[in-house]
Design a protein around this nucleic acid. Structure first.
Lengths: 250, 250
DNA sequence: ATAATAGTGTCTCTCAGACACTATACC
DNA sequence: GGTATAGTGTCTGAGAGACACTATTAT
């Protein structure tokens, strides 16, 4: 980011006299849509609200932006505190600021989305956080990149009521993911270090919720040079063992 | 947006006792990157700052988000107040929240970008706002969608110093525009109601800063069904008069 | 051997790029 | 007529989809 020029003496006097309390200020939070893929379905980490407002409903991990941290840092802090995850792919998504979206007061939420492979998420959530956190299945009631709110289901398929506008926020994350997965190397964020091309294709199919051509997918991925063979092969698969690949940083 | 469920009596008591002043809150502004294309170059509306901080530098039109308005409404209000424009294409861009980006206090800026044709912008800026506003040429020192800050030049080609992190914000708008212009009908927002296919192609070339294949562009645009011929033709062009088209809302 | 998927080879269809050619205004 | 751009037709190469065929392991 570009640094502004050094303030003059006159500007320093102005700044010293500046009173920020003259303006009514909203609260600003960061909410993180932490997504993974289990089997053929996208899942999201939700926490059950133990306090009002909307107590008992399920919401995204989030927190107020602290005075000394950037928005990216706030998102990383939320991920570390609430999910025990560090260093995973995280990107700003959209900022939600409808005046009535939180009944407490004016709360503007800068939403982020993050991607992690299912095993790492299971390990992270399996600890002390188990009680009030769930990795919920996301049901997307629209195709392509139409957009709109989504539904969340628990492991038994029961719907989980979502807090505030979090159904919209998750829907926005799904739309972003669908839009980017075709040309950006996002699938690797959802897989362990070594994976087969079939694994990668199933990730894409789970995100897009439509079948992809096996041959074209293979050609496309190999042609992009985004993956490199490890030399190893998967074992115990009951058929010809596939090559294991890793993400190639070009 | 989805409405949250009706609060219970207990929840209403909680909300009545809630004290928002317990948390330190940042200021939140909306800044608008109002873009247009003049000739072969992208331009942006800038205003000269008459007050500190960064007095004399050039900044995007912006304003504090009011307690009763959404972010979209704040962006529309800024466009109406500072540029006299209503009903033009506007979309949320990105939220900038580095702690030191504004020397006054913590200011988080929700950036929007808006598109308008050059004639409409010239009419809107030609009035009383003339003194402290300029439609500056944007010089992009990176190709494709690499991203990064940009430079702004006045009509004589002199660089205009940009306030705060506005060079980054404009750069983010350029990158978004380059990314979307290939598949979304954005070019029409930058043209008057009737235009030739050559006009539309020149708009795309100005945004992408690279030449486009004339034949493919024509086939692509006509094949998409996004334009419809008006039946009229341009006159006084010194060569075969081209068909005039309009944007076709499918 | 059978089942199941990996991986290769090839054909076709679509589309972008390139180019040639004709059309038509203003000078 | 000359010039400049509009607009059409056609060829070619790249890539996606489809499909046939071979490869290889667990059972």
């Amino acid at each position: 980011m570009q640094q502004s020029t050094r303030p003059s003496a006159e500007e320093r006097r102005f700044l010293a006299a500046y009173d920020p309390s003259r303006y009514e200020r909203p609260s600003v939070t960061v909410d993180v849509v932490l997504l993974t893929v289990r089997g053929t379905e996208v899942h999201v980490l939700l926490g059950q609200r133990v306090n009002h407002p909307a107590r008992g409903t399920w919401g995204l991990p989030g927190g107020f932006v602290q005075p000394d941290e950037s928005l990216d840092e706030a998102a990383a802090r939320v991920l570390a505190d609430k999910a025990g995850l560090r260093g995973i792919f995280t990107e700003q998504l959209y900022t939600f600021g409808s005046p009535a979206r939180d009944p407490r007061t004016r709360v503007i939420s800068v939403a982020y989305y993050a991607l992690v492979d299912a095993d790492t998420l299971a390990d992270a959530v399996g600890g002390a956080r188990k009680d009030h956190h769930v990795v919920a299945r996301v049901v997307v009631p629209w195709g392509g990149e139409a957009g709109g709110p989504v539904n969340a289901l628990d492991a038994e398929g029961r719907p989980l009521p979502l807090a505030f506008d979090h159904a919209d926020i998750i829907g926005t994350a799904i739309r972003r993911l669908r839009g980017k997965v075709g040309y950006a190397p996002l699938g690797f964020e959802l897989l362990p270090d070594a994976f087969t091309l079939r694994d990668l294709r199933l990730i894409h199919e789970a995100i897009l919720q439509r079948p992809l051509n096996k041959d074209s997918f293979r050609r496309h991925v190999l042609g992009q040079g985004l993956v490199a063979p490890t030399g190893a092969r998967a074992t115990g698969v009951g058929h010809r063992p596939p090559e294991l690949y890793r993400f190639a940083t070009r």
